[in-house]
Computed example of a mutant assay.
Amino acid sequence: MVPPRLTLVSNNARDRDATAENGDSEAVHYAAAPLPLSDPEAAVDHLSKSVLREKLRRLEALLFASAEPLDAKALAGCLEPEDDINALLAELQSDYKDRGVVLVRVAGRWQFRTAEDLSYLLERQQKDERKLSKAAHETLAIIAYHQPVTRAEIEEIRGVSTSPGTLDVLMETGWIRPRGRRRAPGRPLTYGTTETFLVHFGLDNIKDLPGLADLKAAGLLDGNLPPNFTVPSPTDVAALMPDELPLTDDGDGEDEEAAQADLPLDDESEGDAGEEPLEDAPKDAAQSPKDEG
């Protein structure tokens, strides 16, 4: 017996009628299956990219709407439990790398900011703007690099007495805070930087402060430095150090505000006025740790 011929024909009815008229009674007609519209693997890739884009859009919306930096835990609330939040944030950061607005990590959190090279476009002068004096800048730098540090230790490093108003101004900005009390006679206050300090200066961690090589490269240090000159490695551990006591553990139940009673506000003392070299200052100007408390 001769096997039937297999003929592929289209689904068109006219073609089927034409084949029947040709007398192919033994032919077995198979309708050709429609060709796939796209490669299955490409469709899967497209779907995964679509899902990824949706997740990035969610993160983008939360970060854009927030006036404050957000941490990874808060951002993960809009995603699935199995999503890698750090990988997604890195992807979003890469997407914004060359734009006018960039995604940066500050104080361990994430925030959209104007690209650093375009910040001049948004600068504006405000009437109530207050510039920090040289003394305030020096004091802030000492606290940032040497924290926790007492007022007497700041004076020893600077070589001049520190006006109470200088510390007041820095605390008003929210850049420094009293950490605790030194385990020493008089139990003087210790100072450290805050999260607001990191956010303002665009630092993820206090260890991101420039080191000796960075300061030299920026021209902030001259070449006539002492042979053993070094820049301390800063730390801003929130927990008290072994040589620190809690603010309230001062022997007589003072709270934080009472502990600062020896630092009166002085609107005109924020500048360098009133500061004298320690060697020329009256004996009560260079406070000892006991007097500072």
Score class of each variant (00 low, 15 high):
Pro34Val: 01
Pro36Gln: 07
Val44Met: 08
Arg57Thr: 12
Ala76Val: 05
Leu79Thr: 04
Asp39Val: 02
Lys73Ala: 15
Asp83Ile: 00
Asp45Trp: 07
Cys78Asp: 06
Pro36Phe: 05
Leu70Glu: 02
Ala32Asn: 07
Val44Ala: 01
His46Tyr: 08
Pro40Arg: 01
Ser38Pro: 07
Asp83Leu: 06
Glu60Gly: 03
Pro36Thr: 06
Asp39Ala: 06
His46Lys: 09
Glu68Met: 06
Leu47Thr: 13
Ser66Arg: 02
Lys55Trp: 10
Val51Cys: 12
Asp45Val: 09
Asp39Ile: 04
His46Asp: 13
Arg53Tyr: 10
Pro40Ser: 01
Lys49Phe: 08
Leu63Glu: 02
Asp71Asn: 15
Ile85His: 05
Ala42Arg: 09
Leu56Trp: 03
Leu79Met: 08
Lys55Phe: 10
His46Met: 09
Ala87Leu: 09
Ala65Glu: 14
Leu47Cys: 13
Val44Asp: 05
Arg53Leu: 08
Glu41Asp: 14
Ala61Tyr: 12
Ala43Gly: 11
Ala72Met: 04
Glu54Thr: 08
Lys55Leu: 10
Ala33Leu: 12
Asp39His: 04
Leu56Thr: 04
Lys73Pro: 03
Leu37Pro: 05
Arg57Pro: 01
Glu82Ser: 00
Ala67Glu: 13
Glu41Gly: 10
Leu63Tyr: 02
Ala65His: 14
Ala32Thr: 11
Ser50Gln: 15
Ala72Leu: 04
Leu56Glu: 02
Val51Gln: 14
Gly77Cys: 08
Pro36Leu: 09
Leu63Asp: 03
Ala43Lys: 05
Pro81Met: 06
Asp84Gly: 05
